[in-house]
Design a protein around this nucleic acid. Structure first.
Length: 169
DNA sequence: GAGTGCGTATAAG
DNA sequence: CTTATACGCACTC
């Protein structure tokens, strides 16, 4: 078993992505805490002795999300059953829209588990494709973001304008 | 068992 | 604005 990792530029800074034979397993922004991210990624996947670099992985992810090019990528999500449940719920939030933590909790049928759901969201290993940036406070203010609150705001603004463009076509 | 966290509501400084 | 209390629960140590 090996993992392949690589880098790519995006309109919002450089990302690092990694995949196993099963699919994309990690995607993070490097702008906020480059060394921390790389170290965390190495610690998380260090169990594999063999790693190879191939920026194709990161480029494909960036192309798919930012330029709508290529096909959807397979994901290889790793986490507790609860985390997987939360992350899959996040992927139901449509492009260009947002949801509150309470919305997510309710649609999961666990309205009282907000706090733990928020924690699981904060541990999302795959930025963009598991759209944790679309989850905000119930009153509309932005909650924190693992890769920086500014980036979260920019991503949401970008999605909103992209969505508006598509509507015009 | 104790402490923590990307929440929410309310009260208070 | 910030701190504090309460509720809540999955996770980590």
């Amino acid at each position: 078993m090996t993992i392949t990792y690589g880098f790519s530029e995006t309109p919002f800074g450089e990302i690092i992505a990694a995949r196993t034979g099963q699919g994309l397993c990690d995607l993070q922004f490097l702008g906020y805490d480059r060394m921390g991210v790389i170290h965390a990624l190495a610690a998380r996947w260090g169990q594999w002795t063999e790693t190879t670099q191939d920026d194709q992985v990161a480029r494909r992810a960036a192309d798919f999300f930012f330029h709508h090019k290529g096909s959807e990528l397979k994901l290889d999500l790793r986490g507790t059953a609860f985390q997987l449940e939360v992350w899959r719920e996040l992927m139901k939030i449509p492009f260009g829209t947002t949801a509150s933590y309470e919305d997510v909790a309710r649609s999961m049928g666990r309205p009282t588990a907000i706090r733990s759901i928020a924690t699981a969201i904060g541990q999302n290993p795959i930025a963009l494709l598991v759209p944790c940036h679309r989850v905000i406070h119930k009153d509309g203010t932005l909650s924190d973001y693992r890769w920086g609150r500014d980036l979260k705001r920019q991503l949401l603004e970008w999605e909103a304008t992209e969505k508006a463009k598509e509507a015009k076509l």
